[in-house]
Simulated scan of single mutants.
Amino acid sequence: MTFVQTFSIDPNEFSGKHVLVSGGTKGAGAAIVRRLMAAGATVATAARSPLPEDLSPALFVQADLVTAEGVAQVANAVLGRFGAVDVIVHNLGGSATPGGGFAVIDDVLWQQELNLNLMAAVGLDRALLPQMIERRAGVVIHISSIQRRLPLHESTIAYAAAKAALTTYSKVLSKEVGPKGIRVTSVAPGWIMTEAAEHMVSRIAEHGGIDEAVARQSIMDALGGIPIGRPAFPEEVAELVAFLASGRAAAIHGAEYTIDGGTVPVV
């Protein structure tokens, strides 16, 4: 199953805008980079993994954003090249903990998940928001997860807790910087068709001694199913991010938008 684009993109919507997307070399992050570039944005991205050959942002910084040194490296590179950043998309995140529930997650794994899914965004905000506040303009988008509401006890306890903290942090930040001209929102995707999602399937299969088809179905069962019958495409997440980053969403602030095919079964 592949994504088919059935709508047009305004190639000038983000003309003159400078954007930073963290974790923009794979999955939804790469899709966000491509979508904003297609709309005329000058995009920088940063990640630990190398830049793929089919992605060509205006600036790429290979750095580890879970460290203070990595955050400083990225912030200095972006501000040095662009002078200012108009939009920050905190896409960096993921889970590397094994299956097996709470007992297998030691202190090191807990700290890794918190650093990757929460503190990297906090660090970049601290480094880049001052220039937005000075100009009284900017947009910050945090990519959270429906796991903050529907954690999978088998494999995503620490990840889910970190994403819950990210959503709460995003809301608090919106209260502080909204009056200073900065819009802050968050996006909570459900299951997305990415390489990282397939790695989670592999970890569950390996831990449980089952094949990947059974592991994949176990995730679907734990989620309670996806009413539209499939996970979201990375490009669909990118489209929501592009809307929230645009002037079309000028009155949207402090809110979280879920994109999960109807997985979360409550209002």
Score class of each variant (00 low, 15 high):
2 T>A: 14
16 G>T: 11
17 K>R: 15
19 V>I: 14
21 V>C: 03
22 S>V: 00
22 S>A: 10
22 S>G: 11
23 G>R: 00
23 G>V: 06
23 G>F: 04
24 G>K: 04
26 K>A: 07
28 A>W: 05
29 G>V: 01
30 A>G: 07
31 A>H: 01
37 M>P: 03
40 G>S: 06
41 A>M: 06
42 T>D: 07
43 V>T: 11
44 A>Y: 09
44 A>K: 07
46 A>Q: 03
48 R>M: 09
56 S>C: 09
56 S>W: 06
59 L>S: 08
63 A>T: 06
65 L>Y: 03
68 A>Q: 14
69 E>S: 13
73 Q>P: 07
73 Q>W: 01
74 V>W: 04
75 A>N: 09
80 G>T: 11
81 R>V: 09
86 D>P: 11
93 G>P: 02
95 S>M: 00
96 A>W: 04
97 T>K: 03
99 G>E: 07
104 V>P: 08
105 I>G: 02
116 L>S: 00
117 N>Y: 07
119 M>P: 06
121 A>S: 15
126 R>D: 01
127 A>N: 07
128 L>F: 03
128 L>Q: 05
129 L>W: 05
131 Q>V: 12
133 I>Y: 09
135 R>W: 01
136 R>F: 05
138 G>T: 03
142 H>T: 04
147 Q>P: 02
148 R>I: 01
150 L>N: 14
160 A>M: 05
164 A>H: 09
165 A>K: 00
167 T>P: 03
169 Y>V: 12
169 Y>Q: 12
171 K>E: 13
173 L>R: 04
179 P>W: 12
181 G>Q: 12
184 V>D: 06
185 T>A: 10
190 G>P: 06
190 G>A: 12
192 I>H: 04
192 I>N: 00
196 A>E: 09
198 E>G: 07
200 M>H: 11
200 M>F: 10
201 V>Q: 10
202 S>Q: 15
204 I>V: 12
205 A>H: 09
206 E>S: 15
206 E>F: 00
208 G>D: 14
216 R>C: 05
217 Q>Y: 06
220 M>I: 14
221 D>Q: 12
224 G>S: 07
225 G>Q: 11
226 I>D: 08
228 I>H: 01
232 A>W: 00
233 F>C: 08
236 E>N: 01
239 E>K: 12
240 L>T: 04
241 V>F: 02
249 A>R: 03
251 A>C: 13
251 A>E: 14
255 A>Q: 12
264 V>I: 08
266 V>H: 11
